[in-house]
Nucleic acid binder design. Structure first.
Length: 698
RNA sequence: UGCGGGGUGGAGCAGUAGGUAGCUCGUUGGGCUCAUAACCCAAAGGUCGUAAGUUCGAGUCUUACCCCCGCAACCA
């Protein structure tokens, strides 16, 4: 860890078009929270910044679809998200929003400064415009016929049939996905950030590590490098929509800053607001070499935080560059990708409602399975397993044992610490109280080191090792046996055990803050103010002194955690499976065609007689279809839904006069008709009774 | 197709700078009874995706291939 005086920690701004789910927590917020809490406990100056990202076309479209306003959408979601973070104990110093006045001004000024420095390029071009919706169309909202392979549903940026990269202007018969109409061409002017000019120093900085004080994670470097290697392109930073921050230039009416330009500036405006409210100077955090800037995010945001935002900061001047960009990969849920549209997620606000006061349990499980190096998975079964084993059996049980024994034998008073008193260590070897305190000190340092180097899973494991050692320590010393014959000999044992749980009450805080508070109450110790308590602990231990004083009176035993009943996880799994997609987007009806056009298509009934998977492809099956008068080889993209052996004998409808087309090296002579539902699942279209082959369908 | 990540005992994962293969859960046996049927000890179980190469020595480096996941659609 770069040992700086001040730390500016950001977590990616959640997009306010939906609530928060566990994937978000796993991606950025819990790691950031652990990191920030740890630094505060070490007595560092910390600003932990986040807020809602509230601009962008997706929000306006959602508003249109739901018949409401963008403002209403962001107000609702900002409220839910903010509340979820608070209740879960994510300790932002400020959770701001990009629709705020201050942010508008900050982003606007930032743009102006860059513009005055001549950092942008202007370019006028023709773009498709949907007259019904009064807006320019993003590439993905235009479909048409591919100029290369005549596939009829190519997108504005790419044809999924032949894989070629396209521009919307190349498409034949372009159609707006919004209205189904043919869009018109309009000229429009946009400002571009010429990232290609920044390549030089970015390479030095990212690839060679020039001017960086910390090693970056492998996945982050990999992503950033691949962007650099493929050559950076100028990126448009303005858009023709009416929701966002107006471009502060003459002749730019009706244009706004593109969200990814305005969003990261949100970190700056939020810092300003926080500084104002707390009597601090925001520039100390953003413009001083004493400060370390660390961006936490999920992998989809790597390019913005490693390349684009640093370029913006550098071009603006005065700003420091990020020390590190610790990005996590993605978390899956019960074997499947999290998906907002399919409602396949554990929503944080729903979790908090269903399982109130189980915040630490969720935090612990997500940290345990945090996708630090690769995608990981959350299952309710593992949630129960981890809570029962780690939190109940190991952690809380150890604390409970100590508290019960102390109450039983010494009326809840801490017996005296004697440094050279004889005790057994966790392995059963002879040791002294002082030596055992050293063992604890070493563990605390290891734990601290892991957090500082972004190894949060290892850190959590180290935390649990401390209570494991505690459990072993009790086992080898057997105070319940010894007490019967030698009360004095039990005193140093219980003292050490109490030292350990006192330390735990502090160092567990970044992970399970609610338990930390309960432990302080239970032990009758001063409430933690997140201000150097961990450092104090290490200082005391370094002097060989005990953490909790002799004769200190602790409270009565309580259960910090409870086992998760089987019914709870069953009902959660049930709930997940019953979730239906909330909205269905029906494809717009295509343009009318003549009867003659329709009759050009020759459809026939056939039967699949052979099926094998096409090598090197995941979607394609090579089928042999009997059509009566002949047999055809047809390649069909159904491998994800059907096993080859299961579809032999299946009757199908085939387009027999479609021009042959080579797919993955196999010539396909026709097309099997399939119905596709909103999840993209495919099913055969076929006669409802066994029918001969080769007959016409009309 | 381009790019990123990965393939390690039954399951889920660690393996940092090449030198006896670790952890959690599960399984089996034992111990303890202070504790939330929690805790502690021990055992069984792996040719580290495949093939070749570098090396005295490779899970760890090189090359080829096979397989899985993700990003290339403003969902961390």
């Amino acid at each position: 860890m770069s040992d700086k005086k001040r730390y500016l920690i950001t977590a990616a701004l959640p997009y306010a078009n939906g609530p928060l789910h566990i994937g978000h927590l796993a991606g950025a917020y819990l790691s950031a929270d652990i990191f920030a809490r740890h630094l505060r406990l070490l007595g560092k100056e910390v600003a932990f910044i986040c807020g809602s990202d509230e601009h962008g076309a997706a929000i306006t479209m959602r508003a249109k679809k739901e018949g409401t306003t963008p403002q209403a959408i962001i107000d609702t979601n900002h409220g839910i998200i903010k509340d979820s973070f608070e209740k879960l104990g994510v300790s932002f110093d400020i959770y701001d929003r990009t629709s705020s006045k201050l942010h508008h001004k900050t982003a606007s000024d930032f743009f102006t400064t860059l513009h005055e420095k001549g950092a942008f390029e202007e370019e006028t071009s023709e773009q498709y415009y949907d007259e019904e919706n009064n807006q320019f169309l993003a590439d993905r909202y235009i479909v048409g016929t591919c100029p290369k392979c005549d596939h009829e549903e190519a997108y504005g940026d790419q044809c999924e049939n032949c894989g070629s990269t396209l521009s919307p202007l190349e498409l034949k018969n372009p159609t707006s996905k919004l209205s189904g109409n043919t869009p018109i061409l309009k000229t429009t002017k946009h400002w571009y950030l010429p990232l290609n000019k920044e390549e030089g120093w970015l390479k030095d900085w990212i690839v060679d590590g020039k001017g960086r004080s910390e090693a970056w994670k492998k996945n982050v470097l990999g992503q950033a490098k691949s962007w650099l290697d493929s050559g950076l392109q100028p990126r448009a930073i303005t858009r023709d929509i009416d929701w966002g921050i107006p471009v502060p230039l003459e002749g730019a009416e009706g244009k706004v800053l593109y969200v990814w330009f305005d969003a990261p500036i949100g970190y700056i405006s939020a810092t300003k607001k926080w500084a104002e409210e707390n009597n601090k100077n925001w520039e100390d955090y953003w413009k001083s070499d004493d400060s370390s800037l660390i961006h936490f995010l999920g992998k989809d945001n790597i390019v913005f935080h490693s390349i684009i935002f640093p370029s913006m900061l550098k071009l603006h001047g005065d700003y420091i560059l990020p020390t590190n960009v610790p990005a996590n990969e993605f978390m899956n849920l019960e074997g499947q990708k999290l998906s907002t549209s399919r409602n396949w997620a554990v929503w944080v606000h729903e979790y908090l409602e269903d399982l109130p006061n189980y915040q630490d349990e969720l935090r612990h499980t997500i940290i345990k399975y945090m996708p630090e190096t690769k995608d990981s998975e959350f299952t309710w079964a593992s949630y129960k397993e981890v809570v029962d084993a780690d939190l109940v059996g190991n952690f809380a049980n150890f604390i409970n044992r100590v508290v019960v024994l102390t109450n039983k034998y010494f009326d809840g008073k801490v017996p005296d610490f004697v440094a050279n008193a004889q005790v057994k260590d966790s392995k059963g070897e002879n040791s002294t109280a002082g030596a055992e305190l050293k063992v604890l000190e070493v563990k605390l340092k290891t734990l601290s080191e892991y957090i500082s180097t972004y190894n949060f899973r290892s850190a959590q494991q180290t935390l649990l090792e401390i209570s494991t050692i505690g459990n072993q320590f009790l086992q080898t010393n057997e105070p319940w046996k010894v007490f019967k014959k030698d009360k004095e000999a039990v005193k140093p044992v219980m003292n050490i055990a109490l030292q350990i749980i006192s330390a735990l009450s502090v160092v567990c805080r970044p992970f399970i803050p609610f338990a930390s508070d309960k432990m302080r109450t239970l032990l009758n110790l001063k409430a933690i103010e997140d201000n150097g308590e961990w450092k104090d602990l290490l200082d005391i231990l370094a002097e060989g002194k005990p953490i909790i004083e002799n004769e200190h009176q602790i409270g009565k035993p309580i259960h910090l955690f409870k086992r998760i009943p089987e019914e709870v996880i069953n009902s959660q799994i049930e709930k997940l499976k019953n979730n239906q997609p909330k909205t269905i987007n029906y494809e717009p009806v295509k343009k009318a065609i003549d009867f003659e056009d329709f009759m050009k298509i020759d459809l026939r009934v056939g039967t699949i007689i052979e099926a094998v998977k096409v090598k090197k492809s995941k979607k394609l099956l090579e089928l042999k279809v009997a059509l009566g008068f002949e047999e055809r080889t047809i390649v069909s993209g159904i491998a994800e839904f059907y096993k080859p052996e299961d579809i032999i004998g299946q009757q199908v409808v085939v387009v027999v006069n479609l021009a042959p087309k080579k797919l993955r090296g196999v010539m396909s002579q026709g097309m099997v008709l399939m119905a596709e539902n909103e999840e993209g699942k495919l099913d055969f279209v076929h006669p409802s009774h066994d029918f001969g082959n080769g007959f016409i369908v009309k």
